[in-house]
Write a protein that binds this DNA or RNA. Structure first.
Lengths: 201, 201
DNA sequence: ACCTGAACACCGTTCAAGT
DNA sequence: ACCTGAACACCGTTCAAGT
């Protein structure tokens, strides 16, 4: 079941995955699916878990805590970034499957190795995770917008039309802005966030 | 129209807002709505713009750049946090309405006042904004989960069941974890992020 | 125990037809 | 020009009935 569901999503996006459609694909009745999942949301969470289970465990990691954290979050970000639909699922529930516990453990340990207390490490993890979620959300929504170019390149129009009088900063950034938001520099931005989190360690 | 739409959302959530439903509420035909908006997504973006327009412009702000940034992001976060549905809309498009330009301008100016170049300020804004989006997403999804308590307190169960053998950090945090994720400390976490962003200023 | 089909109560959007 | 209603092609989920 999950394989078929994944195939539909991969080909046509999350919105195309419906109980009826999935059942058709499987030549089963729609209601038979409800033996395996509570409802559609449950199905989506199941798929997220599978994706999380496939996150590659890097064979060896940098020993230096900061570099180690960068590498670990890279696994998380890149694994989730590949499948645009995760974003829609993340909105309705946290990522917390048995299969990612090792990663969280590693991240916490690295924060502690960097000098934080266990509680500080937990807070730091939450902060960096939330930042990562934001990155995923925003990068996918801008990707989606460039895809449907007929619709709203509105935002960039808006910024381009800014008068330098009242909004000098935005006016100065008219050229830089589109570049900055397109650029995929999760890694670089995360580094800055980590700087803050490790500051008074 | 927008008022009626907002009322529906406020009372029954975004999912309850449909074109047909809104038309019924307005005693108009469903299709008449399509004179005002391109489609349902367009309607949602329109509502987000209105909410953004209502963000209060604080009469006076701290002069010190770091404190100023905290105050400005507070406006943003709290304004958006009040209406749980914004999250679903943010996923399908950035927040970039004419009515928030003043805020972005102020934030950029504050970063520059803190010693960043204009381009660095743009990057810093993007980082802090993405972090803020992540905070909004995660805090609402955990709120939603506590609401439907019958479903998945799964995640906490999962963590509580952790064996101290393989996952010592997670085991040590069993008690702290639920507290940490419930606690609404956007402000404190943002402060850490800003530390990182302002570091080599 | 497990599965089914019909039914309920909805959707967004197109488009020809009316005023 | 503006609005309408019917129609198309869907949804998730309940529940009584079948094997």
């Amino acid at each position: 079941m999950a394989d078929a569901a994944e195939a539909i999503i991969e080909r046509e996006g999350v919105d195309a995955l419906s109980m009826r459609r999935l059942a058709r694909e499987l030549d089963s009745s729609t209601m038979a699916l409800y033996r395996h999942v509570r409802d559609r949301d449950d199905l989506l969470v199941l798929l997220l878990d599978r994706l999380a289970a496939d996150l590659p465990r890097p064979p060896r990691l940098p020993r230096e805590p900061r570099k180690r954290l960068l590498a670990l979050f890279k696994v998380l970000y890149e694994g989730l970034d590949q499948s645009p639909w995760v974003v829609q699922v993340l909105v309705r529930g946290d990522l917390m499957a048995p299969s990612v516990l090792w990663l969280i453990e590693e991240i916490l340990a690295a924060f502690v190795a960097a000098g934080l207390s266990v509680e500080q490490a937990a807070d730091a993890y939450l902060t960096a995770w939330r930042f990562t979620v934001g990155e995923l959300i925003v990068s996918h929504s801008t990707a989606r917008q460039s895809a449907e170019l007929d619709r709203h390149p509105f935002q960039l129009e808006l910024l381009a039309a800014v008068e330098s009088g009242e909004l000098p900063m935005l006016a100065a950034l008219t050229d830089y802005w589109p570049k900055a938001r397109q650029r995929k520099s999760y890694q670089a931005r995360l580094a800055k966030v980590l700087d803050g989190l490790l500051t008074d360690a």
